[in-house]
Amino acid sequence: MFHQLRVSAVEPLTDDAVALTLAVPPELREAFRHTPGQHIALRRRTADGAEIRRTYSICAPAGPEPVVRVGIRLVEGGEFSTYAFKELAVGDTVEAMAPTGRFVLEPRAGHFAAIVGGSGITPVLSIAATLLLREPTARFTLIRSDRTVASTMFLEEVADLKDRYPDRFQLVTAVSREERQSGLPSGRLDRERLTGLLPALLPVTEIDGWYLCGPLGLVAGAERALRGLGVRRNRIHEEIFHVDEAPATAATPPPGARTPAHTTLTATLAGRSGAWPVQDGESLLETVLRARADAPYACKGGVCGTCRAYLVAGEVRMDRNFALEPEETDAGYVLACQSHPVTAEVELDFDR
């Protein structure tokens, strides 16, 4: 469900990024109280009636009074980011879903670390700030990569954490497109570089949780580096902020998979169930949307996880998955936007 929220602040972060703060009315405070690391879906309706949805992570610390502040970077050709960057002003209203997402850290004692690239800093800023504020013994190491210093989002907020918690917050920065007088040499933080760098910075296998966020290449390289250094998979948490378009063969069924000629999808959503035929080539989310406009989704690219549903019965194949952790897929959860039927009867539960 979307709610109308008023824009209370628009703050420039860089030449191509802004921080947008949305005022939460008293009756929605409970709904918009977030766990550090969660995101919200924003919706805009264009003049011709088209609907544009995008997800943005909340960068504000979590607290009893919800503060919905998101960082938005201008993307070339991006309809919503262009609108937010060039048109949105204080006093305007934006349609927003309540916070969701499982790239989270409930504050607890321990040493945690993050490897982020570009706008991947957004959820990690909320995670680190909340953790250090609530847990006096907790420590956090942030390793961030950006194109240039001028393109770095939330410079002041991260500097404030370093000043406020000098003994508990460690910051390591790298830029890929300019030389610096201090810090790491310029260049990308790829698998090879991280494999050599990380053991020199901190006790890699003793970290209680690793949080990887940013473009697919950085996250995938960081995961391979950590696994190669002996980090257990259940201590690695990932969120992708951008992936290229799916390859043309993504929808091709794997060997042995059979797509039935006629499939019926039964789905439960907001306490109501219905059954509909799956049309040729469409995803299960598209099937539901033909009958239920309130079906949850944002990116439709297998990245945000908004359309997560529990597979009650039947079998499906997913084109790709950048949102669900292995334990979630093992437990039976799928991304409806990427799922296609393998059996003649499929049942999903969006409420579970």
Results as ranks from 00 to 15, higher is better:
5 L>Y: 01
5 L>D: 02
6 R>M: 07
7 V>A: 01
12 P>D: 12
14 T>R: 05
16 D>R: 06
18 V>W: 03
23 A>G: 09
25 P>C: 09
28 L>H: 01
30 E>A: 10
33 R>S: 14
34 H>W: 00
44 R>L: 11
45 R>P: 05
47 A>G: 11
48 D>S: 12
54 R>G: 03
62 A>I: 07
62 A>C: 07
64 P>S: 12
64 P>D: 15
66 P>K: 00
67 V>H: 08
69 R>V: 02
71 G>N: 07
72 I>G: 04
74 L>W: 02
74 L>F: 06
81 S>D: 01
83 Y>G: 09
85 F>I: 14
86 K>M: 15
96 A>D: 06
97 M>I: 10
99 P>T: 10
101 G>W: 02
101 G>L: 10
105 L>T: 00
113 A>P: 08
115 I>Y: 01
115 I>F: 13
117 G>T: 00
119 S>I: 07
121 I>A: 04
121 I>K: 02
125 L>A: 11
126 S>F: 07
126 S>Q: 12
127 I>T: 02
135 E>F: 03
137 T>Y: 00
141 T>K: 00
142 L>E: 04
144 R>V: 05
149 V>Y: 08
149 V>I: 14
151 S>H: 01
152 T>V: 08
154 F>I: 00
154 F>C: 02
156 E>F: 15
157 E>L: 05
157 E>V: 07
158 V>N: 06
160 D>V: 15
160 D>S: 15
161 L>E: 06
168 R>E: 04
169 F>G: 02
170 Q>N: 14
172 V>P: 02
172 V>A: 05
183 G>P: 04
184 L>T: 09
186 S>Y: 15
187 G>C: 03
188 R>P: 02
192 E>M: 15
194 L>F: 13
196 G>P: 12
199 P>I: 02
200 A>R: 10
201 L>R: 14
204 V>S: 03
204 V>C: 07
207 I>P: 00
209 G>F: 13
209 G>Y: 09
210 W>P: 01
216 L>H: 06
217 G>C: 09
221 G>S: 03
223 E>Q: 08
223 E>S: 13
223 E>T: 03
224 R>E: 15
224 R>F: 15
227 R>D: 15
228 G>R: 07
230 G>M: 02
233 R>P: 14
234 N>C: 11
237 H>S: 11
241 F>C: 03
241 F>I: 00
244 D>P: 13
246 A>R: 08
246 A>E: 09
249 T>R: 05
251 A>L: 12
252 T>W: 12
257 A>R: 08
258 R>G: 10
258 R>H: 13
263 T>A: 14
264 T>A: 11
266 T>W: 05
269 L>F: 14
270 A>C: 10
277 P>V: 09
278 V>Q: 11
280 D>Y: 06
284 L>S: 08
286 E>S: 10
287 T>Q: 06
288 V>L: 12
289 L>D: 13
291 A>W: 15
293 A>H: 11
298 A>F: 08
299 C>S: 02
300 K>G: 14
302 G>L: 10
303 V>P: 10
306 T>Y: 15
307 C>F: 06
309 A>P: 08
312 V>Y: 06
320 R>V: 12
321 N>V: 11
323 A>T: 07
326 P>I: 07
330 D>T: 15
330 D>Y: 10
333 Y>A: 01
333 Y>F: 14
334 V>D: 06
339 S>P: 01
342 V>F: 11
345 E>G: 14
348 L>K: 08
349 D>Y: 02
350 F>H: 00
